[in-house]
Design a protein around this nucleic acid. Structure first.
Ligand SMILES: [Mn+2]
Ligand SMILES: [Mn+2]
Ligand SMILES: [Mn+2]
Ligand SMILES: [Mn+2]
Lengths: 225, 225
DNA sequence: TTTCTTTTTTAGGCTGGCCTAAATACTGCG
DNA sequence: CGCAGTATTTAGGCCAGCCTAAAAAAGAAA
């Protein structure tokens, strides 16, 4: 039986792999809130599992095997389906869903998964715009640019927001910066670390000044213009 | 932080206390699917917890302290609310809900609890007729007689069914023996171990022959007649 | 009350998952 | 190349929860 700890390790390895390419012991330790030595120990075990869950060689980082990736995707599917369900069916706000899903993801049955999936109409995205792996564990990877990378004058549709920081999520919701919102970069301050962003499709939509910590967390599908 | 294992021990102690009065090491071990020696070890720890969760003296059984009972009731509230929610909101049948609730009960937040409680309209009973402790952890204890204890000719309302055995639950559901159903004992075989029971309020309602293993698991509030 | 049986506890061990401190390997720079 | 600094691994421990086997206590029966 796969433990909750193992599921979290595999999920984190998967996510780090897709964010930063390489997966180091230290990065993993940091994300998991655990000492680096503990990670080394766990990676050894995962590599000795039969079937092997990760490819691991001392000092050379780690990557998921197909078996490991399958488990990671199952956990991610649970996580994102649950997030959406909590929001849609139970009225959670998008900054509350992550914490609850973090625990529930390890515990629900396949039956539960199937039922909420059906109830939500086989949804493709979670409340933060993250794609939900299909039942067959296929995962769309849109990979749009960050808001901070847009040039002045460009506009587009918010596709995804990083779901790490609840306070940031509340702030963004207040501004109306949620998936599918329309954004236009009205202006860019020197050195590009501050943007003036119009939120909404109308030319008289309200505009806000956003710093790098914010604009790095928002992903935009560039449109028209 | 209270672990899942501790929560399960406290819940089981509570339930054994209310079923059989005394709580023995062996009975607890059996219910938990664990060796008796493991129970002894855990009971010692629970008794040394600050605040104390159980009263325990070697060879003299165990009982819950107020602090232990509070935790037990919180877990039971979670369990029964979740069971009802799974049935009402997700379409689970009453024989499936227990297994899923067994895991979820340890993991949901107070927020989750409050939300499903509100959504269900602060329900008083779970799908098997077990009372749900209130938010303040008050628990109604109806304590009706078993169907097996009724005399021929008596009738009443099914108040509760023991939820242990999914196969039995499916069988009972087929016969229409669910909470609030009306039953009448049409006849009693010699030595009283087999009953002929009419299910339904009409005098032409279908009647079934039920053995002790079944009639011991059904509780009836005797009415009229 | 003595003996036998059943119940419970003690003793000793194991695994998973974490920790700190110390050792070692890699990396980039002078 | 050699060395400093960083990243990683090893060594040695701890705690929760479980196990089996053996000892001891309680309870029933003679
Ligand atoms: Mn998790
Ligand atoms: Mn998310
Ligand atoms: Mn449980
Ligand atoms: Mn129940």
């Amino acid at each position: 039986m796969i433990s909750e700890a193992v599921e979290n390790y595999l999920k984190m390895i998967y996510e780090l792999q897709n964010e930063t390419g390489k997966v180091s012991t230290n990065a993993l330790a940091e994300k998991l809130g655990v000492a680096p030595a503990s990670v080394t120990g766990m990676l050894k075990k995962l590599a000795e599992e039969r079937p092997r869950l990760v490819n691991y060689e001392r000092h050379h980082g780690v990557s998921l095997t197909p078996a490991g990736q399958k488990i990671a995707l199952e956990v991610i599917r649970h996580h994102r389906l649950i997030e959406l369900y909590l929001q849609q069916a139970l009225g959670y706000s998008w900054d509350q869903v992550d914490a609850e899903a973090e625990k529930l993801e390890h515990v629900i049955s396949e039956d539960f998964e199937d039922r909420i999936d059906a109830l939500l109409g086989q949804p493709e995205f979670d409340p933060h715009g993250d794609p939900i792996p299909t039942k067959g564990l296929q995962l769309a990877r849109p990979d749009h640019p960050r808001l901070s990378e847009l040039a002045a004058g460009q506009s587009g549709r918010v596709s995804r927001v990083r779901d790490d920081d609840p306070a940031l999520l509340r702030y963004l919701a207040e501004l109306g910066i949620i998936p599918d919102a329309t954004l236009t970069v009205a202006g860019k301050a020197p050195f590009g670390d501050t943007l003036s962003v119009r939120v909404g499709a109308e030319s008289d939509s309200p505009s806000h000044t956003l710093g790098r910590p914010v604009t790095d967390q928002v992903f935009v599908e560039i449109q028209g213009k």
